[in-house]
Amino acid sequence: MQRSWNAMKKGMASFWQGLREWCGDAAYEKYTKCVLRSRQQGDLLSPTEFYVQQLNKKYSRPNRCC
């Protein structure tokens, strides 16, 4: 019973994380982790700067199809 409950909790957590990554909620977290890993903290963008910069990039190339 406990094992099934744990498996279900793990599955739901993975789904939630996947959903956050798919819709873009987790993008800033991933970005900060990457910057911290590469030790270039001086270049760290604020959440607003990062959000606007990502949108400008995304919508400057084909990203929605027919």
Partner: peptide
């Protein structure tokens, strides 16, 4: 909302 109040919080706004 996404630009000024909760930048990047796409899920809740959507």
């Amino acid at each position: 909302y996404l630009r000024f109040f909760r930048p990047g919080r796409v899920l809740e706004a959507s």
